[in-house]
Structure formats: structure tokens, C-alpha cells
Amino acid sequence: MEIETLDALDDHLDSGESVQGLRLQDLDLTGYADRLRERGDLAGLVVLGGRVPPDVAEVLLTRGAIVFPGIADAPIDPWRGLYFPEDLYDGLEQGYAATPDARAYAWFIDATLRTDAYCTLIRAIHDDSVTDELDELVDGRSVVGVMGGHALPRGSAEYAAAARLGHGLAEEGHLVATGGGPGAMEAANLGALCPDMATLRHALATLTEVPAFAPDVTAWASLGLRVRRTIVGAEPQVPTDTLGPSARSLGIPTWFYGHEPPNVFCDVIAKYFSNAIREDGLVSRSNAGIVVLHGAAGTVQEIFQAVTPLYYAPEDVPLAPLVLVGRRHWTETLPVWPALQQIAHGRRMAESVHLVDTFDEVLPLLASPAS
């Protein structure tokens, strides 16, 4: 059982139930030495990060608890889980390089730390914490994954169309999940975040001032954050563990592609160090279907990652639809569709893969949130 708030810890201690096997995650245990000293069942209690003063640590360790300390010299908190856009872009007024997002990427690619066992452990703990909160966020939700390339510029007709698709999906009750980056991903997240078409039209018009994240991420993200505040306001964010039912827009980016900064139009961001875990998590959680917009190598990889479970799925497992948008792109520019047809031939998945030309054709092909 995980305990993630002091209120929950107090309730458990007051109940008199055993604390063996509990996981106390990212809590400030200052002042808890006496309460814990009264317990005779600390063996097997696991404390993950947070603040553990010396008097509390002494009680825990001498009585058999396991204490994982906080990490002082990493640019991220490995126990924190999901992010809000403002978390990753904190300090942006000093330039993108000063933000936690940029510093985490610099730390990740540092050749002297890349294979360091200590840093590897930190990254693994971080990604597991993200997965833990992400599972809680999507539990019971109808999730549609929207894949697409990062190069699609703000202000283009294709960007606006992808944003309208994201909005339509969210209005149908789906949680719109993307790779969390710029371009088509940003557009779908933007559309999902906007509560109505008037807000979306205003956002699209404003964003044309800075069409791309290169060469100036600072200007691109700053404008995005300004537009985000017109959509959701500047009120403090609700805790991520209560956000699930109301979330419309989810980003799942990775520092593996750190040259692609995360877009700011997600209700919440699940950012990973491991691209493999991130891609599998995005595909496997898209239980209502996956929509694939124009993209290049990364998008093609995601298509075939989605195809594999469709190909091998047992007969009693329902198949989520996979919809490719853009007949010419997927048959001529990048001829993925002919390969999919050959793979699907004679198999049950043939009824689940689709090629369409317009976004209006997408929604009827997806699983209903009520199903």
C-alpha cells in the first residue's frame, strides 16, 4: 500500500493497523520520530525519498525499515511522478537552458553520467514513479492516442486540422494522449485542452506568432504558456491524483528525444527517460484507438509498435482501431499502408486497421467511451 500524503499517513497510524509493507512516498517526516518509535512493526516499512530527519532515520533504520534517501544532486525529483507544464518550464524567463526540462536533458546525455550506476538507478526510480501516477490517471478512462511528427508548424492548415481533431476527441469523452512534443502532438493536445471552438480559434490565431520551436525554444514555450493561461487560467493546479476524471489532454514525452521540448497544452505530462517504456506506455494505454497523422521515422516506429499487439492478440481480446490519416502520405511518401495490408492479410486485425483522408472519417472508427 502506497502512502503519498501526510493525512493518509496520520489516518493509517491512528487506525492502529500494521505499517509493515507500507510505502511512504516523498513525504516530509519531520516530527514523526516519537510516533514511529511507539510502533513495534517497522520492519518491512519502505520510505521512498522525501525528507527524513536524522532522529526519524535512526528510528526507522534501527527497527528494520528500508529508507531510500532523497537525491540531492539530480536535476529531477525521482519520486514525484507526473508533471504540470509549469513544472518543466519553471525559470523559463531566464531562458530555456535554465529550466528543469533542459537541465534534465543535459544531465541525461552527460557522457560521464550516462552509464553511472547511481544515475541509472535514479532514472529507473523516476520512470517507475511516473508510471505509477500515470496508471492512476488513466484508470477507467477511454484513451485515444494521437501520433504525428514534430515538424508541423503552428499556423498551417494541417496544424489547425489536428487541433480540431483533438478537440473533437475530447468532446466525445476521450482522454487525448500524444507523445507530448511539438507539431502534430502539440496541435492535438491544444485542441483537447480547449473547452470550446471559440477558445481554440483564438489560440490558433495567437500561436502563429512563433510557428516553430527551432531555433528559439524560449520564445516558442513562452508564447505557449501565455496562451495556456488564457485557456485554463492561472489558478494553482489540482493534485494529479484527483485530475483523472477531468483530464482531457495528456502528453507522454521523453528526454531521449530531448531536442524536442514538451508542449504546454497538456493537463498533465508523463515525461520519461526511457523511450522504450514511454512508447510502450503510450501505445498500450490507448484503449479506444490510435490515430496516426503525418510523421517520419518516429511515427513509423510507433505504427509498427501498435501493430504488433494487434497481430498477436488472442481471439478473446478486443482490438482497438488503428487509423492512418493521409492516403497519399502513407501509400506514396512513406508507403507504410501496403506493408500493413500484407501483415493484416487473413488475420483478425484486418478489420481494425484503417486508412482515411479526412479527420471527419476518424471519430466513427474509434471505440465509444461508453463501450
Rank of each mutant, 00 (worst) to 15 (best):
Y311S: 02
L88H: 05
A219I: 09
D360E: 11
P364I: 03
Y272R: 13
G81L: 13
A184P: 11
N287S: 09
I109N: 10
L22W: 04
E93F: 04
E58D: 15
S352A: 15
A192Q: 08
V59M: 10
L207P: 02
L92R: 06
L60F: 00
V291L: 07
Y257F: 14
A124L: 14
D10T: 15
S246L: 03
G91V: 00
G149W: 03
T178V: 02
L243Y: 10
E38A: 15
P335G: 07
G64E: 02
V143A: 02
L60S: 02
H12D: 14
G70S: 10
E361Q: 07
T5K: 04
A296Y: 03
F256M: 15
P245E: 04
T62P: 07
A8Y: 00
V138Y: 02
F273S: 14
A161D: 14
P261W: 12
E315W: 01
G149Q: 09
A106V: 09
T254F: 03
P245K: 00
R51K: 14
Y96F: 15
A111S: 14
R228S: 01
H12V: 14
L169W: 08
L243M: 12
L29I: 13
A198S: 12
V325M: 03
V238F: 01
R80T: 14
V59H: 08
M1C: 12
V268N: 05
G64D: 02
